[in-house]
Amino acid sequence: MPPSRYRENEESKAVWVYLEQEEGTLENVSLEVLSKGRELADVMKWKLVGLLPGSGVHALAKEAITRGADEIWVMDHPLLTTFTIEGHGAVVYDAVMLGKPSIFLLGATHNGRDLAGRLAVRFRTGLNADCTNLHMDEKDALLVSEVSGFGGGVVAMIEMQNHRPQMATVRPGVFALSEPDSARRGKVIDVPVNLKPEQIKTRILERVRSGVVDLTRVPVLVVGGRGVNGDFETLKKLAEILGGDVGATRPPVDAGFIERERQIGQTGVVSSPKMALCCGLSGAFHLLVGIDKADVVVSINSDPEAPIFEFSDYYIVGDVSQYLPVLIQTLESQQEISHA
């Protein structure tokens, strides 16, 4: 098969990570990938490099270093303020061709997927998308990516012999964040950016970063039923702690406690969260259709006969209003410990 733009014998022994930022904040998944990248680099005794395109993003380089990067390549340019596939694609391509890393990792965000899909073809290399795990085959110095298909029904291990870079995108939330080490030192390298306005073909006419409810892909879905007695504030708080969002069964929607766009089930949203937390709902079939695809189902209901328990991985028989405050408190204190 035709070779990639550079091959394994030209590679530099390094793991590169694309650092995605939005309005001066690094995406969580970028930090997660950085943490994993550190692990992979340590196994091979390689260098970990962060690639940071944007405008006025120098401050973020330091943060990335505390998460394990040895070097940060900063590409600072006004045309990189917001993500465009042409702008970010061009500068990332140039940087990778300059550094020729063995491995290049990205977070599987909307932008990360766009960029990876396009660049992999530009490099004429392979790409493992939406990986659920990564490790090194030390003997051959190859990256092994775990990907899943068929709705999570099949997992495959994928590697690539000769084409470079070895590219993978990683699903958000898969890897744990490493503890930041503020004493860590690294190099910040300014990469000159050659970008002309006419290269950017895509114009952003409008951008809205909040207010759109999309429950189909939230990581955690907290669903409230009749047994919540309209107290969706507590549920929202819980969802917030867990980085998720709130849905509801039909009765609370009917009663006007919560918007209809949050109704889960046959005539509402079908969601596939990592976890569905069912509070005070009995588990009618038309609801279950909406959380069928959750990886884990946890439920709390006072009725020991509630059908939802048959459909749960873990459950508590008890009153939601009694358990949720304790649960929130416990989760919050855990959070404090991990941030301390």
Partner: peptide, 8 residues
């Protein structure tokens, strides 16, 4: 419905 709906 009786095949799939848990109630039915």
């Amino acid at each position: 419905t009786s095949s799939y709906d848990q109630r039915a």
